[in-house]
Design a protein around this nucleic acid. Structure first.
Lengths: 115, 115
DNA sequence: TCCATATTTCCAATATTATCGAAATTTCAG
DNA sequence: CTGAAATTTCGATAATATTGGAAATATGGA
């Protein structure tokens, strides 16, 4: 990933309404949400929401999928991971010091730790 | 993590100079860098760099450590992970669909996975 | 065709952010 | 104490972003 691309993505996320929209779409998964659903979830006027959706779209974080007179938006998960990787890239010069996340987050299968 | 805190962190990162500084500190690990080293790495006038360091500090992403007449800055790795988690929180409604990163990135100890 | 619905574009007012010279502050060395 | 070095604060200027009403566009249903 390139600097300017990352800045654009971070700029898109660095705004309360847009960050809320983005997380809503991330949590919605591949099904996404149509613009109207998002608008009523956030209580934003159409013009304002459209502006924010455009910003997120231009940053490559979400994508529009026209469906008749609705437009469904979905999060781009690859873009999300690319951004996250860019932030933590070569963390601590590859020495796994303070870089590892606090808990590796065992999903369902319990990893017994000797505590 | 809370919305406004996340917005503040993302705002701090959403600027080319600051993102560059931040990544420099992330890659420097716990040793960090003193302001002068950062300034010459980026070629920024002192006042400009100071402004950006303050922004990153207020966002809780880095911390200053005064050392005589130098000030060493280090990245806050916990803050970084908290931000990353906030972005991907409850991704796809916990259904591991498109959410998982492309490759689980095996570190050094090979965790044998049945593919 | 005609109307209601969904969304975007246009535009102008308002607010926020970035830049950096110069001066102030703090600290070390001699 | 005196001077040089590292960093921050101040302040003015320029650039960029956010907001939302009104109008435009596109679609589907009767």
């Amino acid at each position: 990933m390139e600097l300017n691309q990352a800045v654009q993505a971070l700029t898109a996320l660095a705004q309360a309404h847009r960050l809320t929209v983005y997380r809503l779409l991330v949590q919605a998964g591949p099904a996404g949400k149509v613009a109207g659903e998002i608008a009523s979830a956030l209580g934003l006027p159409p013009a304002t929401l459209s502006f924010h959706l455009k910003t997120l779209t231009h940053a490559g974080l979400i994508h529009p999928h026209p469906e008749g007179r609705h437009v469904r938006y979905t999060a781009d998960f690859a873009a999300m991971h690319a951004l996250i990787d860019y932030l933590s890239e070569n963390c601590c010069g590859d020495t796994r010091a303070a870089c590892a996340p606090p808990a590796p987050q065992p999903p369902v299968t319990t990893t017994r730790s000797p505590t």
